[in-house]
Design a binder for these strands. Structure first.
Length: 529
RNA sequence: GGGUCUAUGGCGCAGCCAGGUAGCGCACCGGACUCUUAAUCCGGUUGUCGAGGGUUCGAAUCCCUCUAGACCCGCCA
């Protein structure tokens, strides 16, 4: 490693960007503007993984710019895709729209132009909150304006060859029989039901017949309409197996990341780009999908969808960016419970970046600093901001449920964790508080209170209700336990269970004074009677 | 049928994609502090890095084979 030259900022992103440039130079292509693309699904609720595609592409754009190239990120919404199933929590009234392009389905909330834009805007909103800049394009406009017509024409005239190759590459026979183009039926507005059988090359029209089709395990009735779709302006779209290639060629895309679930499609598209459209396919990187945590349900009603909107209630944008930039391979199960460690990992990177933590291994140091820079979208702060351990905040939030922000701020200052309050710290406390409230629902264990313990508890209540300064509450509690012949250990445990719903906690004497004697007396009182 | 990922102390994981002293959390053990609890702090133990081969001065890391598990594709997007 010592002999190695560090590329860019030493991360996988830099390495990828440099491979990309090298490839472009070998191909002899113009590198005055290198476009990268990210596809945005518009048919379901976008989760962190959907963001990942765009965020990582943006990282590559940053790396390219850092290396002195001009670059642009195209965020392309697949809003001509048909709706296949209704996402959890959406009204059944969408049923009648199954099979229609999502951009033609009304938005049930009325806030967006269409169902598709509703979904897209959630994703775009997530990107904006992370500070990702992009050029937005939509499938609907792309087809309406005929931007892909040359590519469509070429593909359709070679459909036989393509159909055979698809079978060869991925074993799918369908396109030997049908054209890889799905018209939207002019009569019932649905995709997939209209099967394209013939391409009228001279007129650039596709002849189709609308009939029953199976979508998502359900039979969708076709309307029987027979018609022709004009590839220059009518609605309809290429099948995914060939659509990327058309887009790459039309928009001059040089890089696109993809999830392993569409590996096969990418394989076919690469071939189509290279051999049919004569456009050397973009450089790729494949990433693993994020999976829901197995067995651990987060929220059944929400279907465990980890959306950026929800994530940002608990963690900073940087925590999402860290998750997505720290590595590209081997992503596994993901859930909100990863937030605390990501938050603290970010703090650690920050300390490394500002030289507060020493790292011996030069390569690791460079990489960590680089990662920090990417997480800050290459514009890191000039000096180290005040930081607080997220886990510490979680602990404090579990204890202080009311007046959280001022009380925790005070504690933090007592602990010398911070020097002064600030809007940033307040925000962190708020996020940790949200997290603590949402996920640290302690098990409501039945507390074993026998008569002996009851007696001791009532003594404690009496003590707490006295309106006097208590000098050494810790010891008083200890003496009560001792006096009633209870193991102090067990008595403390009961107190923790009553007050905090855990079996342990901070030193109890000062802690009770902290959260208020009356408050505690009330809580304990419930167990005495 | 095709493909991808994962395998690292008791448990959960990081490190791997740019080879250079095997790390973290929990658990565990010891100590400090506390009039004896808990918490806290300090220190410590825990590993044939799934198996086998290869490359290398050097492999958890790169290559090949194998084993086990998870997932994806073979509807559609």
């Amino acid at each position: 490693m010592s002999e190695q030259n560090v590329i860019g900022k030493g991360t996988w992103i830099d390495k990828l960007a440099s491979e990309l440039i090298e490839r472009e130079e070998q191909l002899g292509r113009d590198t005055s503007l290198i476009r990268v693309e990210s596809g945005l699904g518009a048919s379901g609720i976008p989760h962190i993984g959907s963001l990942g595609d765009a965020v990582r592409a943006y990282g590559v754009k940053l790396a390219l710019e850092n290396m002195g190239y001009k670059s642009e990120l195209i965020a392309y919404s697949d809003d001509l895709d048909g709706l296949r199933k209704i996402p959890a929590g959406f009204p059944d009234s969408l049923e009648e729209h199954i099979g229609k392009p999502v951009s033609l389905i009304p938005d049930h909330t009325g806030e967006h132009e269409s169902y598709g834009m509703n979904m897209s805007s959630r994703l775009l909103d997530g990107l904006e909150k992370l500070g990702i800049e992009y050029t937005f394009k939509r499938a609907r406009d792309t087809y309406k304006e005929g931007l892909l017509q040359e590519q469509i024409h070429t593909i359709l005239t070679q459909s036989e060859r393509i159909g055979a190759k698809i079978e060869d590459l991925v074993g799918q026979e369908k396109y030997q029989k049908f054209l890889p183009y799905f018209p939207v039926c002019a009569q019932c507005n649905r995709l997939y039901v209209a099967e394209a059988t013939e391409y009228l090359s001279d007129e650039r029209k596709v002849r189709y017949k609308c009939h029953d089709a199976e979508i998502g395990g359900k039979i969708i009735k076709g309307c029987g309409h027979e018609g022709e779709a004009d590839i220059k302006k009518d609605l309809g779209k290429l099948a995914w197996k060939v659509e990327f290639a058309a887009r790459w060629s039309a928009f001059d895309i040089r890089f696109e990341a993809y999830g392993k679930d569409i590996m096969d499609s990418v394989k076919v598209n690469d071939w189509v780009a290279d051999d049919v459209l004569n456009f050397p396919h973009p450089h790729h990187i494949k990433y693993e999908m994020f999976l829901d945590k197995g067995g651990k349900k987060i929220s059944k009603s929400l279907g465990n969808v980890v959306t950026s909107q929800t994530w940002l209630k608990f963690g900073t944008p940087e925590s999402i960016l860290l998750l997505l930039y720290k590595r590209i391979t081997g992503a596994r199960e993901l859930g909100f419970e990863d937030i605390p460690s990501l938050m603290d990992e970010y703090n650690e990177l920050e300390k490394i970046f500002f030289g507060k933590i020493k790292i011996d291994n030069e390569a690791k140091l460079v990489k960590s600093k680089g990662l920090y820079e990417y997480v800050n979208l290459l514009t890191p702060p000039k000096q180290i901001p005040a930081q607080v351990s997220y886990r510490l905040l979680l602990e404090l939030c579990k204890i202080f449920k009311e007046d959280r922000v001022p009380r925790i701020n005070k504690k933090l200052i007592d602990y010398h964790a911070i020097k002064e309050t600030s809007a940033e710290i307040d925000k962190l406390i708020e996020m940790a508080g949200n997290f603590a409230d949402e996920f640290d629902i302690s098990d409501e264990i039945d507390i074993d209170v026998d008569s002996k313990v009851k007696g001791a508890l009532s003594k404690l209540v009496i003590l707490l209700e006295k309106d006097e300064e208590i000098e050494d509450l810790q010891n008083e509690i200890y003496q009560i336990a001792k006096g009633d012949d209870i193991e102090p250990k067990d008595f403390f445990k009961v107190l923790y269970q009553i007050i905090l719903s855990t079996t342990r906690g901070p030193k109890i004497g000062p802690f009770i004074l902290d959260i208020g004697k009356k408050n505690v007396a009330e809580k304990i009182g419930k167990y005495v009677n």
